[in-house]
């Protein structure tokens, strides 16, 4: 029975929320950057002069991981894990913070992969028309909108939760 009590412990729920935000968004970014990196390697094998352009495209899906980390940190600050003064949370407070981590955790994961695929597809543009880098970056950059919206949703939830 002790594990059930522990499961519904407010602090543990908040920690799970922070972990989910970092894990989901970080995994999405890792996969996205990996996908774009594989395509970038293909272009670079034939044309090493395109390192700069391909690196820019590869870096785009990396932001989701940062957003996840920001939300994770904010949750940890709110519950006092960062700062050295842990706060005793109720189950409802812990659950609220867990839910606050969901938007960036879930959308960070899916958008990271989607952005990686869009970046990889745009490597084909760079391979043939490097002068079109600006246009090529726009397509994966559009995916970023939804990661930012999820970050905003997570942040507003975090902001509204009173401890």
């Amino acid at each position: 029975m002790e594990w059930i009590t522990s499961l519904f412990n407010g602090t543990n729920l908040a920690l799970a929320g922070a972990a989910f935000a970092v894990f989901g968004a970080g995994t999405g970014s890792a996969k996205g950057v990996g996908i774009a990196g594989e395509a970038a390697s293909g272009v670079l094998t034939e044309d090493p002069g395109k390192f700069g352009q391909t690196l820019l495209l590869q870096a785009l899906p990396g932001t989701q991981g940062i957003y996840g980390l920001i939300i994770g940190f904010l949750i940890l600050i709110k519950i006092g894990i960062v700062g050295g003064a842990p706060v005793e949370l109720t189950t409802v407070q812990g659950l609220s913070l867990f839910v606050a981590g969901l938007p960036i955790g879930v959308v960070g994961y899916t958008s990271g992969i989607a952005q990686g695929r869009a970046s990889a597809a745009c490597m084909g543009i760079i391979a043939k028309r490097p002068e079109e880098l600006g246009k090529a970056m726009m397509y994966p950059a559009m995916v970023e909108t939804y990661a930012v919206l999820a970050l905003l949703a997570s942040f507003l939830m975090w902001l509204g939760i009173a401890i």
Partner: peptide, 13 residues
């Protein structure tokens, strides 16, 4: 096919 496709796209030109 990420690596292979990107490499081929670079060669298509």
């Amino acid at each position: 096919y990420l690596y292979a496709s990107a490499r081929i796209k670079a060669l298509e030109k």
